[in-house]
């Protein structure tokens, strides 16, 4: 079942990238997608049934909108710090605990943190994420972990766990 999901996704990706709906192109795409799913199929999507729950798609959309908004904010934030003559930075690496369990959800959270204002994920060891922050706003671990993970953690928990 996992292999089928990977096959379908790679096939869709191939068709979008090449965008020619001739028979030869579709056959070539099927061959490539089959090889891809044979090699990488076992690494992805441990529970395919989750794809079919509408509730998860709803939270995914909420997450996507929040994510795009955070990205745009991040850009203005960096532009402000770069253009400001005094360069208001207060960088450092902070430790943040995560409650997410699955690898996929953690990867998504790490990627989201990297794209949000002023933070880059450096490493994940066990339950702890190490995050480089360009302007540390608080000294209290409880306050800053809330600021760093934002609402992403609860949204990702709702659709990916």
């Amino acid at each position: 079942m996992r292999y089928v999901t990977v096959f379908i996704l790679s096939m869709i990706f191939w068709l979008l990238i090449t965008f020619r709906f001739t028979v030869s192109n579709i056959v070539a795409g099927a061959a490539v997608a089959a090889i891809t799913s044979a090699i990488f199929g076992r690494y992805y999507f441990h529970n395919v049934g989750k794809f079919l729950q509408p509730r998860r798609w709803f939270w995914f959309l909420v997450y996507l909108v929040t994510f795009i908004w955070a990205c745009i904010k991040a850009n203005f934030d960096v532009a402000y710090r770069v253009l400001h003559p005094g360069m208001p930075i207060r960088p450092g690496i902070v430790k943040v605990k995560t409650t997410l369990r699955s690898d996929f959800a953690r990867t998504l959270l790490a990627n989201s943190i990297t794209m949000t204002p002023g933070t880059i994920t450096v490493d994940i060891i066990g339950d702890e994420m190490y995050i480089h922050w360009i302007y540390i706003r608080s000294e209290d671990p409880a306050v800053y972990s809330r600021m760093v993970t934002g609402r992403f953690e609860e949204y990702i928990k709702k659709f990916a766990e």
């Binding site: 850009n75 934030d77 960096v78 532009a79 960088p91 794209m115 880059i120 480089h132 360009i134």
Partner: peptide
């Protein structure tokens, strides 16, 4: 403009990706 490698990478990833 930014001082060290880590801060420079912040500018490089965010601005360049959304750009």
């Amino acid at each position: 403009r930014l001082p060290d490698m880590y801060n420079r990478l912040q500018a490089a990833t965010k601005c360049v990706t959304l750009g």
